[in-house]
Write a protein that binds this DNA or RNA. Structure first.
Lengths: 190, 190, 190, 190
DNA sequence: CATGAATGAGCTTTCATTCAT
DNA sequence: TATGAATGAAAGCTCATTCAT
């Protein structure tokens, strides 16, 4: 009974993810979401207040899963470079394996699609990375620049790579990832 | 009379740019575009085939203006680093001054909004940068990696900085740009 | 357990009365009725066939309570004027104290909301008043006009007074009622 | 061109009048209104903001026509009784000939269907009758009671007679109107 | 060329009602 | 008996597009 609930809730989020990815938020009618999730259109409104709420909740869900993945195996005991490496590979692996989720997050971050409130909410989770960078700067290992710059040159580029990967313009195998990491690290290291 | 034509054409593109930036492609009805441009909805269809055509043409227009800006003052006579510097600063300056255009391009590149054909069309213009990178690799100055990687770590990060700048989370003054260039260059230089 | 039944039945009627009064028949969804009555929407269909049946039954219930009230303390032994006075005051007191019920009856009588069958059913109860009027006419005390006219000028005006009372545009104290009765009586007396 | 506008506007109001009368506000979908008026559903929204606006505007239109009719041939030079007679017969004739309009007004006045603002707006027009009554009271011809009472016992009863007339339960010929007027006047005269 | 009016198609959302439990 | 979940049908409304002028 509780199962059924979670099932439909999840099915709806998944359907939305797929459709918004392939067709955009516009051009993704509720009826299509319902059909792909295997429920009636009216059922959506049992689990979500409205279309905006559905998309917001999907965003938060995906963002949370992304962030929990990002810090797997990481502790602040690790030396700066090693710690950064762990996180960076986590993120890269997530984005390149869960491409649907990655593309969706990209779309959300570059489009006025998600409530500002939800966007803020979604940002909180990257805190440990910021702390790590701060430590790296103190230790003279990482350049003394704004965390926004560090993010722009290490994590953000992955979005582009994923997009090219999805379009099958590039492969990103183990070697490629190592090379990409090199570029990221060279960019921010002192 | 020719003036008038161009005026309305331009006004429509400008109106679309503004509205799509602020509200997204969905939630930007033709009627609102017409109103902001100061014309009748029917008039749009004199200049554009339909909504998709309007957005495609806007994309190409903006992309072209962006690319022409990007290579101002550049010749392939320049040494690799100097040539890259010229182009990079051009792009940075364009994106940070014409933020509306920059945000729009971001949205187009991360959303299934533009026809694949038009996207391809828009890509052509960056050719000289690719040629420059090839030269850099041959001269052993730039890392031997895919141009997609080079793009991801030098040009693409600017989109993130622009977004943060527009949200007034960061300033990007002359010094910041110099720092940003340093990160870009460190990333790809051998 | 029988208690429970009656409780829910009554609660549903009461909830319907309140909601239809405040929001109209349209704009009164079954779900809201259920919530206000403290039961599940599905439970309504145990006690009532459908929405129309619910509203019909409410109408008959209220009409019956109204009519039983109307003839309290009345016998056909009373002289005509005294008898009329008793009934008229009963009706006035009912309408002005049970304003929710009175407003609801008004709404039913002026709107195609209740089945014609139920409306006919509801009319039967006023019989004794018609008989009294007939007697009054024979005795030469009451004008020889259709009972519809007599009703229109004695009972029906009270609906207007109740409406104005509910909107707090007029008070209707003991004195006002006496004055109102005077107008009613002057209207129909020979 | 202007013709067309007025035509459709009027056709829509007329269609609404008919349907709301026969089926109630609930159970009168916009699509049915459109069909009866011979236009597309979308066209309604060129002339009216939404369903509520449509019904409000209809109310004001009908109320205005009613009131302008009510005071035809009346001047405050007339003696009180004569003046009252003129107005009363105007109202009676309007209601008994334009029964659709009369029934609609009844429905609006007894149902939470019209915005409070519009209801207030609609009330203004009866001013001259109130002034006449005031004069009658000063001259000792009319009972010294609230205008609400006077209205309840002279004008309001007509709504009941119209309803019975529409249901074909009574005829209301010239003689009947004279009798009805007698009851109204006896009610309020000193 | 330019437009206001018009619309069919389709959108999001609601709701009376049902059904498995 | 009682219900929360589910839904088909339909509601109000919007919008890209057309067309007579």
């Amino acid at each position: 009974m509780k199962e059924k609930n979670t099932d439909k809730y999840t099915a709806l989020l998944q359907a939305t993810l797929t459709l918004v990815n392939n067709r955009g938020f516009h051009d993704t009618p509720m009826s299509k979401i319902a059909k792909l999730a295997g429920v009636s259109p009216a059922t959506i409104y049992i689990y979500f207040e409205n279309k905006q709420d559905l998309i917001n909740k999907l965003y938060l869900e995906v963002k949370a899963s992304f962030c929990s993945f990002a810090f797997e195996g990481y502790t602040d005991q690790l030396p700066v470079k090693k710690g950064f490496e762990v996180i960076w590979y986590n993120i890269a692996n997530y984005k390149l394996s869960k491409t649907e989720e990655a593309m969706f997050l990209s779309q959300c971050d570059n489009t006025p699609m998600i409530d500002e409130v939800s966007l803020q909410e979604g940002l909180k989770h990257l805190q440990p990375l910021l702390v790590l960078w701060e430590r790296g700067k103190k230790e003279g290992i990482i350049k003394s620049v704004s965390p926004y710059l560090l993010y722009a040159y290490t994590v953000y580029p992955l979005s582009f790579l994923v997009a090219m990967h999805v379009k099958e313009l590039i492969q990103v195998d183990e070697n490629d990832r190592r090379r990409a990491f090199q570029l990221a690290w060279d960019s921010i290291k002192v």
